[in-house]
């Protein structure tokens, strides 16, 4: 009976990939595509309807966050901020909390984590090519990077003209944590949320067992999959899988140091971090990549459970 539910659910027009619900071992697996990545929600239950409700709640939350914070959409909050042309704008509570969080990470990391560094993508295109920008280009863009130039007095944000913010560095992890909250509102059954390898579980499986999940693309070629087992908390991975520049034998990873406006060099190919929440795990993964060759030492100093691939 349960298997009969393993059919395809059309969740929108033909342009949007369908979400699916299927039996997977002792779980129901609800899969969809959002934030440019495959997403899945696993619920350990025999109740297909319950699993579908949980999956739909997670998907709705993911799509809400994607639309609200996408820098590609003019009607998104980020789109409005970036189009503010130096005028102060008032942010809603959720956005204000994200901005607060980003501002505190900026302080804590000594300026390494900076949501204004997205503008650097105009000169750094990580397409696997050797298109490294000229020093003049870097010099020209430097005035438009630096959170310290932004005026942030909750809830009013004033972004200098020419500057942009990008919450892409924490949006997906935030969506994972929020999706778990949405699933938790629908069911208390054990659940796992996995958005493209950034994942969180509600707790141990029934009987205390651990979740087993494969995550793709932990190496530079995007070919090495890893298997993760966990009973609580979250996992996030940062890496330069397929997103890099290669010039004169120097590999530029897609993580940019906002202070020099150049990519970090000597960083691991990928860092996978375990933490209580996906946002925390993702932030540690990013911060350690920004440490370059010191990534592993940094994680050890902080006592973070992490795996680096060099």
């Amino acid at each position: 009976m349960a298997l009969a539910m393993a059919d395809t659910h059309r969740s929108g027009g033909s342009d949007r990939p369908a979400s699916t619900l299927a039996r997977s071992g002792a779980d129901f697996r609800y899969a969809f595509h959002a934030m440019a990545t495959p997403c899945e929600v696993r619920v350990e239950t025999d109740d297909a309807a319950l699993a579908e409700a949980a999956g739909r709640a997670a998907e709705a939350e993911a799509r809400r966050i994607e639309q609200k914070f996408s820098r590609y959409r003019e009607d998104s909050v980020v789109g409005r901020i970036n189009a503010s042309r130096g005028r102060a704008i008032e942010l809603d509570a959720e956005t204000a909390q994200l901005i607060d969080f980003a501002a505190q990470c900026f302080e804590m990391s000594g300026g390494l984590f900076d949501i204004t560094s997205g503008v650097l993508r105009k000169i750094w295109r990580f397409d696997g090519s050797d298109n490294v920008p000229a020093p003049e280009q870097i010099k020209a863009i430097q005035p438009f990077v630096g959170w310290q130039k932004v005026t942030w007095e909750t809830p009013m944000l004033t972004l200098p003209v020419g500057m942009e913010i990008d919450l892409g560095g924490l949006g997906k992890e935030y969506a994972v944590d929020r999706a778990l909250a949405a699933v938790g509102a629908a069911t208390r059954e054990p659940a796992l949320i996995n958005f493209g390898g950034d994942l969180v579980v509600s707790g141990a499986r029934k009987g205390g067992g651990r979740w087993k999940v494969a995550i793709e693309s932990v190496d530079h070629a995007g070919q090495m999959a890893a298997m993760i087992e966990l009973a609580d908390g979250a996992i996030a991975t940062s890496g330069d899988a397929r997103r890099f520049l290669l010039k004169d034998g120097v590999r530029y990873c897609h993580i940019l140091d906002p202070r020099s406006c150049t990519p970090v060099t000597g960083a691991p190919r990928s860092v996978t971090v375990a933490a209580k929440t996906c946002v925390e795990a993702g932030m540690f993964a990013t911060l350690s990549m920004l440490q370059g060759p010191r990534a592993e030492a940094f994680l050890k100093e902080e006592g973070v459970r992490a795996w680096c691939i060099w």
Partner: peptide, 25 residues
């Protein structure tokens, strides 16, 4: 562990600070 403690607290605050806090969260 300085960053870790702060970040853990901040992260949890971020996730929980929303009107629709679920029982699980």
């Amino acid at each position: 562990g300085h960053i870790r403690d702060t970040l853990a607290t901040l992260s949890l605050g971020l996730i929980a600070a929303n009107a629709a806090i679920s029982p699980a969260a």
